[in-house]
């Protein structure tokens, strides 16, 4: 039932000679198909939590179970494989591959999954159409606006049919109109495909759209209102 289970995770970074405790014993349960926002000020530990849940970083203590997989028991290749099939990422800075076109960026994940060329192209085009980028398949990232690049990133995150999409401040670099449009697309995908979305954000618009809002302060859960408390859509 739970797509993510975090059990008392902690993480400390070394910044020069100073040890910074980014996450201090957080436990979380995220239900499949939910639309959750981790909110909090910069440096509160939101991104670290997302990275740990996505297997990009490992906790110093505690356990993360992602869709039934114990991340602490997996090596780098197994984690990469898990991310490939179960996790979609959307980053604040879009992070598209500059030498690939919009279509190829979306296709890339399916290429890694071993999907054949025709199916790959059909699925990539369909999802680009869904996010409103029909006719822009061959544009390279440099030829797209910030909002369009983030739509490609969302398409890339969703095309592999992941169990969860982890979006780290996805609207931070976008104007409010573009941000809202993108958020609506993600909400629609959540409802249509039952994909779980977990955001880190300090954007009120995202918080307003989340069905569950978890406030993070100083690496701890400050407030968790549970499901369906804050649906303003």
């Amino acid at each position: 039932m739970y797509i993510v289970e975090c059990k008392n995770i902690t993480k400390t970074y070394q910044q020069g000679n100073v040890a910074v405790q980014a996450v201090r014993g957080i436990s979380l349960l995220i239900t499949k198909g939910s639309f959750v926002a981790l909110a909090g000020p910069s440096g509160s530990g939101k991104t670290t939590i997302l990275n740990i849940i996505g297997g990009l970083d490992s906790p110093d203590a505690g356990e993360v179970i992602l869709d039934g997989n114990y991340l602490s028991k997996m090596n780098q290749s197994e984690l990469a494989n898990l991310r490939l099939h179960k996790v979609g990422f959307v980053f604040q800075a879009y992070n598209l591959i500059p030498v690939l076109s919009a279509l190829e960026n979306v296709e890339y994940v399916m290429l890694l999954q071993g999907v054949d060329t025709i199916e790959r192209q059909d699925r990539a085009k369909a999802i680009l159409d869904d996010v409103g980028l029909e006719g822009k398949y061959s544009r390279r990232p440099a030829e797209l606006s910030g909002g369009q690049q983030q739509r490609v990133a969302v398409a890339r995150a969703l095309v592999s049919n992941p169990s969860i999409v982890l979006a780290d401040e996805p609207t931070a670099n976008l104007d409010s109109g573009t941000g809202l449009a993108l958020l609506k697309i993600m909400k629609e995908m959540n409802e249509k495909r039952n994909v779980t979305f977990l955001f880190s954000t300090h954007d009120h618009m995202v918080m307003d759209h989340a069905r569950r809002l978890i406030q993070i302060r100083d690496g701890q859960v400050a407030d968790d209102q549970g499901e369906e408390n804050t649906d303003a859509s």
Binding site: L56, Q76, A80, R83, L84, F91, N95, L112
Partner: peptide, 16 residues
């Protein structure tokens, strides 16, 4: 390096 990080994040294995 940053791009390699992204490629790994979206599922590219270090070997690939």
């Amino acid at each position: 390096t940053r791009e390699f990080g992204v490629l790994m994040a979206i599922g590219t294995t270090p070997g690939r």
